[in-house]
Amino acid sequence: MRLGVLCSGGKDSLFACMMAMEKEEVVCLIALTPRNEESYMFHTPNVSLVSLQAEAAELPLVEMPTAGMEEKELEDLRAALVCAREKHQIEGVVTGAILSVYQAVRIQRICCALGLWCFNPLWHTDQDAYLDTLIKKGFRVIISGVFAEPFDEKWLGIPLDHASVALLNEYRERYGITLSGEGGEYETFVLDAPFFRKRIEIMEASSEYHNYRGFYRITRARLVGK
């Protein structure tokens, strides 16, 4: 089955992409690039760098700008899926949704209306096991945004590794965050994945942080050999 992967640049969509590649044919990545940092549906920091990830994975990218306003985003998503079907003959869509009924329902409805299959291979996954596998499989992931207490600015740009996951576990116990960040507590960006032919090297980045809310913005990056 020819599938397009809805890709935010973060760990969940690219891990779902790897799962889809193991069972079906992934023919493109699909990204909506919101201009609104409060995007209801789509992960925001560094989403414009998805094109570099697509190049690293040697996959074509269907990119659709969106104003990031709640219901308008859904029209833009629909347009992106129609475009992916016309350009790459996708029969279905893959998402990295884990727990968000809000996100999953809206994508399911659009896929249903368009006659596309919809797969959420991480749906209700065991989050401890998922993060452990992510690291062991060789994904290189950084924290690209934090949006909740008690994250401080030291989190911005650090790798998601066993040490940071141990701290996230503590935060889960003490502050009730979701381990995978599915509740929007933090966002990630993938620099390398097992199916990337090249990896992304950050050449220039800046951080912006205020009151438990921060962004790590990659302003220059390039692909290098693995």
Partner: peptide, 15 residues
Amino acid sequence: NGSLGFDEFVRPVAR
């Protein structure tokens, strides 16, 4: 057997 749907519809029940 072994489709992507397994991860979404069988594994959560197993958990």
